[in-house]
């Protein structure tokens, strides 16, 4: 397939993509996704591996019938709720207003497009 290049008159998405506002939005969004994924998958796969290959660790009792394994399940539930809540709040306050700004600039038309260079 032939390499495609953006047309000379400038694709408006490309222009928006290189705008400072969008780059901030993109950096914030991807930074959150990255650390959230690391925490989330790190937690789950560490726990899964412990349950699978170090069962004695998870059998350790922490009080009454409750062992570390059950505590891990409980904390996993808490993690899902907490991480969802944090992401919803982060997105509402830090992502959506910026996204709205970029979108409004884009949809208003080429004349009032977002500040930024066309590549």
């Amino acid at each position: 397939m032939v390499t495609q290049s953006p047309p000379a008159d400038g694709d408006r998405y490309v222009a928006a993509h290189s705008s400072a506002e969008f780059q901030t939005l993109r950096r914030r969004s991807q930074a959150f996704l990255l650390w959230a994924s690391v925490v989330f998958f790190g937690w789950w796969f560490t726990g899964s591996a412990l349950a699978t290959f170090a069962p004695d660790f998870f059998r350790r009792e922490v009080g009454g019938p409750v062992n570390l394994g059950l505590l891990f399940v409980l904390l996993s539930f808490v993690l899902v709720v907490t991480l969802s809540g944090l992401y919803l709040r982060y997105a509402r306050t830090r992502l959506d207003p910026l996204g709205e700004q970029v979108r409004a600039g884009l949809e208003a038309g080429p004349d009032v497009g977002p500040k930024g260079e066309t590549r």
Partner: peptide, 26 residues
């Protein structure tokens, strides 16, 4: 392994996925 490359499409999906913007484009 393929020579195909479309930077504009990448810009488009990133802008659209984060902002929901729709404009008639390329």
């Amino acid at each position: 392994l393929s020579g195909e490359r479309d930077d504009a499409a990448f810009a488009e999906i990133q802008v659209r996925s984060l902002t929901g913007a729709v404009v008639p484009a390329r």
